[in-house]
Nucleic acid binder design. Sequence first.
DNA 1: GCGTAGGTAGAGGGATCATTCTACATCGTC
DNA 2: GACGATGTAGAATGATCCCTCTACCTACGC
Lengths: 174, 174
Amino acid sequence: MTDTMRKISDGLERAFASRGFAEPSVEDLRDAAGVSLRTLYKYTPSRAEMVLAALENRQQRYLHRVFDGLPEEPDVALYTILSRVGDWMATETSHGCLFHAAVAADPESPALRALLERHKAEVATRAATACGLGGNDTALLVIIEGLTQAWPLRGAAAVEAAKRLGHALQATTS
Amino acid sequence: MTDTMRKISDGLERAFASRGFAEPSVEDLRDAAGVSLRTLYKYTPSRAEMVLAALENRQQRYLHRVFDGLPEEPDVALYTILSRVGDWMATETSHGCLFHAAVAADPESPALRALLERHKAEVATRAATACGLGGNDTALLVIIEGLTQAWPLRGAAAVEAAKRLGHALQATTS
DNA sequence: GCGTAGGTAGAGGGATCATTCTACATCGTC
DNA sequence: GACGATGTAGAATGATCCCTCTACCTACGC
């Protein structure tokens, strides 16, 4: 039950991440999920819900991987977060943020919009509290978003630039 | 001739910007362009080329609107650029960057990928030279990309945060 | 041994869509 | 006034896709 759902979510996330949201047909998604078409539709009754399931899965994996077990020291925590975002980009996705991609593929969906906003708000507040920048989470959001978008274009240099910006930000507000 | 092409490009850009890259059918695009299906296919012989035409158009308009007639003073130029990016977001697009959206909608297209890289490289170098940060264009790219992505979530606060980051960057490198 | 829950395999409907093609209109130029 | 270039209107085609439905299988508790 929950086992099947996890298998489906993992497969869907992998399929959408590697091939985008427009390309894969439902039959491709079935193959990626490793279940039958009937079972796939039982857990995710439409293609739109398959997208949502994939994003819920990714949200959990991303938060876990970037924010779990951060060091206490605020500036070390910031460096760690930005390094981890770079690692995430390197290993999990070659081009941009999957949530933005999903919204771009279907801009009229309120559910996707809401999921994106929830995800980014969570990222911003977690980063701000970990870095001791409570009231300044928008600046941190700009840095993390910028890093995520610039990484496909500049690679590791984007991580270094983001760290420089983060350091400068902490220096001016402490 | 060139007149018709401009009309088509304008209409295509408007259609894709407001409804995304997946939704509008070629007949919708024809309506937006204000020409017949035959003429549309004459100038842009496939839907993929309609996307490219729209992005070429947007590239020109964006560069014109953000970088034309900047003040000489580097820090004033930086503020001006970031304000203009905010204005662009407010008036032209409600959600993210159209180039990233196009790549997200069709991640396998090398032509789209190349266009995105060319666009962002142009933005980064123009911004860096205008702000007197020649060797640091990656940091500026992070800020501008971050602002573009954060604007739909935070609005004017994102512009202010980006300006703070830019100011801190200029302070540390001068 | 048997019913039930949860699974597989895959064919078919119904709709949409990108692209092409035919037939006709307009207009500046020789 | 005829002609060629450039446009419009819209039907036909061929393919794809989402989703549903039928028929069958397997494991397990009682």
